[in-house]
């Protein structure tokens, strides 16, 4: 379990970076507003960042451990289908998580 000093430093780091990203552009971004590369990055970055983060959360996925791999694969498929169908962020996350918990705790547990 991480100690309190480390946790405080970690929170401070995340706060400093996040706040800087929110505050500094008001002063700095004005001249870059029309740069075509900045416009391009603003459009394409978000989807890629979300994909990388999704893969990151699945980093421990291992097909050789079926008791853990099946719940993850099935719950992910369920989440994606539910979201494409209902388009409701909270419903998709709650539904996917419930399916995963049921599979991991009761079916494959």
């Amino acid at each position: 379990m991480p100690d309190t000093g480390y946790l405080i430093a970690a929170v401070a780091t995340a706060v400093a970076v996040t706040w800087a990203l929110r505050a500094l552009p008001f002063a700095l971004l004005a001249p870059l507003r029309s740069s075509p590369l900045v416009v391009y990055l603003r459009k394409v970055m978000p989807v890629g960042v979300m994909v990388v983060l999704t893969v990151y959360t699945l980093r421990d996925f291992d097909p050789h451990l079926p008791d853990r791999a099946w719940p993850t694969a099935l719950a992910l498929a369920f989440t994606v289908v539910l979201h494409l169908w209902r388009r409701n962020v909270l419903l998709s996350i709650a539904g996917g998580t419930v399916v995963h918990v049921l599979l991991a705790s009761a079916v494959f547990g």
């Binding site: 989807v47 979300m50 999704t54 959360t57 719950a75 979201h83 998709s92 996917g96 599979l103």
Partner: peptide, 18 residues
């Protein structure tokens, strides 16, 4: 077990939306 799947679901759903 397996509540942490909410994080995976969150990012997958956000990826679909963007």
């Amino acid at each position: 077990k397996g509540l942490d799947f909410a994080v995976t679901a969150l990012f997958a759903v956000l990826a679909i939306d963007v």
